[in-house]
């Protein structure tokens, strides 16, 4: 799989590393059960800090895309990684917008529920 990061970009490196994995998933080139290279290996080939890659992998784990286990490395777990990741990023945007407009979590939840019932 292709790894690319631009240190001169304003996007943090760990976000760029995570984006490499998401793009691979979106292109259908990573399947459930596939193993990602170890964080150490990725850090080595990109010449970035190990913690940068670990942070990227942790983000992906929090998004439910991969499973991190000691000794087994990072294993792809989500069947529809692209959709799931997109939803999470939309929700993040939604919450950010709600904060700006002063909408409470209860109000936002109600809005979402009413949208479901349409």
């Amino acid at each position: 799989m292709l790894w690319q990061v631009d240190p001169t970009s304003s996007t943090p490196l760990h976000v760029q590393v995570a984006a490499c994995v998401r793009r691979e998933m979106a292109d259908g080139r990573l399947e459930r059960g596939d193993r990602l290279p170890s964080a150490k290996e990725v850090a080595g080939v990109l010449d970035v800090n190990l913690h940068t890659v670990l942070r990227a992998y942790q983000t992906l784990r929090d998004e439910g895309l991969i499973d991190l286990r000691r000794g087994r490395g990072a294993v792809v777990t989500a069947t529809d990684p692209a959709g799931d990741a997109r939803l999470r990023s939309l929700v993040a945007d939604l919450v950010a917008e709600a904060r700006l407009t002063g909408t409470t979590p209860t109000d936002l939840t109600r809005l979402i529920e009413s949208e479901f019932q349409r």
Partner: peptide
């Protein structure tokens, strides 16, 4: 070739 700026670090694992 890849169409990326020279500042981009690229690598490939497989």
């Amino acid at each position: 070739r890849l169409d990326v700026p020279d500042t981009t670090r690229v690598a490939w694992t497989g």
